Simulated assay, not measured.
Amino acid sequence: MQPDLSDLDSFLDDRGAGGYLVYADSEDSTQRYLSGFDAPDPFLTLYDGEVHLLVSSLEYGRARKADRPATVARHADYDYRAKLEEYGHDEAGDRITAEFLAEHGVESVVTPEEFPLGVGDGLRAQGVDLEAEREGVVDDIRAVKTSEEVEHVAEAQTANERAMARAEELIAEARVETGTDAGSGVLVHEGEVLTSERVTREIEMELLRHGCALDETIVACGADAADPHDRGSGPLRADESIIVDIFPRDKETKYFADMTRTFVKGTPNDTVAEWYDLTQEAKEAAFDALEPGATGKDVHDAVCDVYEDAGWPTLRSDEATETGFIHSTGHGVGLDIHEGPSLSPRGGELEPGHVVTVEPGLYDPEFGGVRIEDIAVVTEDGYENFTDYPEELVVE
């Protein structure tokens, strides 16, 4: 994948900077995106219209095989050992970086705002003009996905749906036990109490079978489900809402997907049943508003309208509310699970290639929570929803 970095070229020209400099490992999404190289330890990427890497000798062979870089250098090319003996580790590194920049005719650089302060101070001491940018120029470029990136997200979403099916299967197969040590109404699967932790493990194993992994997920039941970011713990119970929110990352491409479904094993109370219908309506309203030229705020407002018209609070109607619709409608997904654009009160104009979640929900500790989330890409004439997973509240 060769991203279009013309906006970065224009940004550097406007700043009068010779290049854009990143120092991080490839878990940093800006590093991964610009360099096209995957390494577990920090390395330098200089973009000056082309991509130039400065890596350790350990990574040199692999880096030279990467498609993106125009040049690859290693510390040994700049007499690293001699500099280390004369100046010590930190200053030796600073001097090598300064020489690396000078070799490419670069005297001034712009960096991401997360650029390490110590490295930045060291480069300034070597005469490099260095400025951190906070506009998120690379973030904005990354937000508009290429067709290849869109396919990466769609592939991760396919694996995600396999994992969601496994979670729903466990809940469906469970029976309601009234005489366990965990109390009445707990779910039991194959003789063991069905817990959030057990469902999470099954989700993780299913994702691994399909080339994906995750650091954490959400399987939250009852009052836990009333907190949108509570990961959930302990036994799952009958007649209470169970929010399952899975956001895996493809192990090869490093792109994320994201999806949420809400289940009830048994009979939901009237409030949860009403919330579910409203949330389906709110999600439909969001998708009706999702198109190029609309703003993320437009999409968010469409969701708030549905909930407020039904008498439920939102952060738009009451910024201090702790119940009702208490988060934004969605976010961008790509190399990060949360990135631009935003479907929120601050959401800007949407463009073809923006990949976003749509995830309305309602929450109250008295009743639990309900959230439904799909993932889609904005297209030239609307959107394409990647999500092909049914929405059924009651699990039989």
Rank of each mutant, 00 (worst) to 15 (best):
Ala156Met: 13
Val193His: 03
Glu114Gln: 14
Ala76Arg: 11
Glu161Gln: 15
Gly136Trp: 02
Ala73Gln: 14
Asp67Asn: 14
Gly183His: 05
Arg81Phe: 08
His104Gln: 12
Ala98Ile: 11
Ala172Leu: 05
Ile141Leu: 12
Glu155Lys: 12
Gly118Asn: 07
Thr158Ala: 07
Val150Met: 05
Glu155Val: 14
Val188Ser: 08
Val138Ser: 07
Gly185Met: 00
Glu59Cys: 04
Glu114Thr: 15
Glu99Gln: 15
Arg134Pro: 04
Ala82Lys: 10
Gly88His: 03
Ala132Glu: 12
Met164His: 13
Glu149His: 07
Ala174Asn: 09
Val106Glu: 07
Asp181Val: 06
Glu86Gly: 07
Arg162Cys: 03
Thr195Glu: 00
Asp181Leu: 15
Glu151Cys: 03
Glu114Lys: 11
Ala167Glu: 07
Val188Asp: 08
Ser196Arg: 05
Ala73Thr: 14
Glu168Pro: 06
Tyr60Met: 06
Glu173Ala: 15
Ala98Tyr: 10
Thr195Cys: 05
Ile141Ser: 07
Phe100Ile: 02
Phe100Arg: 08
Arg64Asn: 10
Glu85Asn: 10
Glu114Pro: 00
Arg134Gly: 10
Arg166Gln: 10
Asp77Gln: 09
Ile171Met: 11
Leu187Phe: 01
Val119Pro: 07
Asp140Leu: 13
Ala63Gly: 06
Gly88Pro: 03
Pro116Asp: 07
Gly185Glu: 00
Asp79Pro: 04
Asp121Tyr: 13
Ala143Asn: 06
Glu131Tyr: 08
Pro116Ser: 07
Leu187Ala: 02
Glu59Asp: 15
Asp121Arg: 15
Ala156Arg: 14
Val150Trp: 01
Glu103Tyr: 08
Ala102Asp: 14
Ala167Trp: 04
Arg175Asp: 11
Met164Thr: 03
Ala165Ser: 14
Lys145Phe: 01
Val193Cys: 04
Glu135Thr: 14
Ala174Pro: 08
Val110Thr: 14
Thr71Ile: 06
Pro112His: 09
Glu99Asp: 13
Val106His: 09
Leu101Gly: 05
Ala63Trp: 02
Leu84Glu: 09
Lys145Tyr: 04
Arg162Gly: 00
Tyr78Ala: 01
Phe115Asp: 06
Thr178Val: 00
Gly118Asp: 14
Ala165Ile: 05
Ala73Asn: 12
Glu103Ser: 14
Tyr60Asn: 03
Glu168Leu: 05
Arg68Cys: 04
Ala174Phe: 09
Asp94Ile: 01
Arg166Met: 11
Arg74Phe: 00
Ala125Leu: 08
Arg175Glu: 15
Arg74Ser: 13
